[in-house]
Design a protein around this nucleic acid. Structure first.
Length: 487
DNA sequence: CCTGGAGTTGTCCTA
DNA sequence: TTAGGACAACTCCAG
């Protein structure tokens, strides 16, 4: 019998739960399908870099399938009808997929399921994108966790007790057969220019093979930057010290279980020097599960503040200031460097994501949702759960939010995490000649110094658009009104 | 039910 | 110069 494996955000053959089941149940007679959904591709929350990454990943998947004696069937349209048509044409018995927890995916999948079932086709879906789903980790009173630390404790404890959750889904070699599917049409992979993309950083090639290379590099402790040094170096945006696996984790071109297995093995082997780094990295993977769980349990976070008392802050929402933030022209070097990194590379270092998010909300007094959307449109790894969670955290509206009076100072953040100004110089060339003491506060240069270093502040590089100290006081007042009384 | 410890990643002022 | 406490009050969560 034939089973359709419907690929979505699991674009790999190895360690793929639903695919492994499809192969097992069908004896290898699996029809691999991906459906390009224009509602997603042309929507507000996806940009050219991510589309290009998706198309590369699909090309890689198609190639790997071909080498395994199979082929990827690509369709374009409404998943319900495309799957229904394919199920009829190929006389399949069932359609399998891995679960996705975003609100759009949940309603789409429910609708696909009922369409297929009413037509007499069996459907089945599995956990694959996370280690633990929302209903697997509850508090002692059977409620979903809303605070990270107790969640992480519970998560680690669960892994200790039942490491089976991270076992590989595919213990046997993949055996795919090519059925008699001559009548099955597949559309060609679209030209990415159709979506108006420009090539991203070469480090971010899509596909499971590229992901494996990144993974191998990151877990090779003999490298200068690796999981072994992660805890010490990950906060310095100038260093290539993070895994860069985020776009792959988003699209499933790498197995999240494989990541956790790797972290776990470094932690358990106390002889390695990577215990601290691996533990810190594992924490990030737990955050990933945490925000997926929040999204699944509280889908309203997509369009409003998690903490209702912060749902209607009187933001300034000045469009000119927003445009300057987007363009990296705020006059605060670390902020501008980060935004320019985003605009040119479709990626931003995690530390500077926090800095620009704090700056947009707390210094420019602009609604975090504007920033959230801009990130989704530009980031190659834009992931609804993580991005929303991160922005709500920074804005102080989220689960487990930072206290509202913790306002990042862009200058001290710059000095602390980019002490030599290497990161700023890389993305803000007009400041490249400044010595370190001035790189994060160029407005302090005298006219003579500006002449000496070949930069005129206010001409070549902006005077700070806002005064951090003033804005800090304003936002403290604005938020303070929200905490006293009305809750 | 109550109790008490704790809460990702900070900043600033004061002694 | 530097270290330590204030910044609010509240909710979450385990015991």
């Amino acid at each position: 019998m034939t089973i359709i494996h419907w690929f979505r955000r699991d674009l790999r053959l190895h360690d793929n739960t639903a695919l492994a089941h499809a192969i097992g149940d069908s004896g290898g007679l699996v029809l691999p399908v991906f459906i390009l959904d224009d509602r997603l591709l042309k929507g507000q929350m996806i940009g050219p870099a991510k589309v290009s990454f998706l198309l590369e990943s699909l090309a890689d998947l198609a190639q790997t399938l071909k080498q395994s004696g199979s082929r990827l069937v690509l369709r374009r349209g409404d998943p319900r009808y495309e799957l229904l048509r394919l199920a009829h044409v190929c006389r399949v018995q069932a359609v399998y997929w891995n679960r996705d927890y975003s609100p759009y995916a949940l309603s789409r999948d429910a609708s696909v399921e009922s369409t297929l079932q009413s037509a007499g086709f069996r459907t089945q879906h599995w956990k694959d994108a996370v280690i633990y789903e929302a209903n697997e980790l509850k508090t002692t009173t059977d409620r979903p966790y809303t605070v990270y630390t107790p969640y992480a404790r519970r998560w680690r404890q669960q892994l200790q007790q039942q490491p089976v959750a991270v076992e590989s889904a595919t213990s046997n070699p993949l055996k795919l057969q090519q059925g008699d599917w001559s009548a099955v049409e597949s559309v060609p992979l679209p030209d990415s220019t159709e979506f108006g993309f420009t090539a991203p950083d070469p480090l971010f090639s899509g596909g499971a093979n590229a992901a494996q290379q990144l993974f191998d590099r990151f877990t090779d402790c003999s490298q200068h930057h690796s999981i072994a040094t992660y805890h010490q170096q990950r906060d310095q945006p100038a260093l290539p010290a993070t895994s860069k696996l985020s776009p792959h984790l988003h699209l499933g071109t790498i197995s999240p279980r494989a990541c956790v297995r790797a972290a776990r093995s470094f932690i358990q082997r106390a002889d390695t020097l990577a215990v601290d780094g691996a533990s810190t990295w594992l924490n990030e993977l737990i955050w990933r599960d945490f925000y997926n769980q929040i999204l699944a349990q509280f889908p309203s976070v997509v369009h409003r503040a998690f903490k209702s008392q912060f749902a209607d802050i009187a933001w300034d929402n000045n469009p000119d200031l927003f445009a300057a933030w987007c363009a990296g022209q705020t006059g605060y070097p670390i902020v501008d460097a980060a935004m320019r990194q985003l605009n040119t590379e479709a990626w931003m270092h995690n530390r500077t994501r926090m800095i620009v998010a704090s700056f947009l909300t707390k210094d420019l007094l602009i609604n975090w949702q504007w920033g959230e959307r801009y990130f989704m449109q530009h980031l190659i790894d834009g992931d609804l759960a993580a991005n929303n969670g991160g922005w709500q955290w920074a804005a102080g509206t989220g689960t487990d939010a930072q206290p509202y009076f913790r306002i990042f100072n862009p200058t001290s953040q710059g000095k602390r995490f980019d002490p030599e100004g290497t990161y700023v110089r890389r993305y803000v060339p007009e400041l490249a000649a400044l010595p370190a003491p001035y790189i994060h506060e160029p407005w302090r240069l005298s006219t003579e110094q500006q002449h000496q270093y070949g930069v005129q502040i206010g001409h070549d590089y902006p005077i700070p658009l806002v005064d951090h100290q003033i804005q800090r006081q304003r936002v403290l007042e604005l938020y303070g009104q929200r905490t006293s009384g009305a809750g």
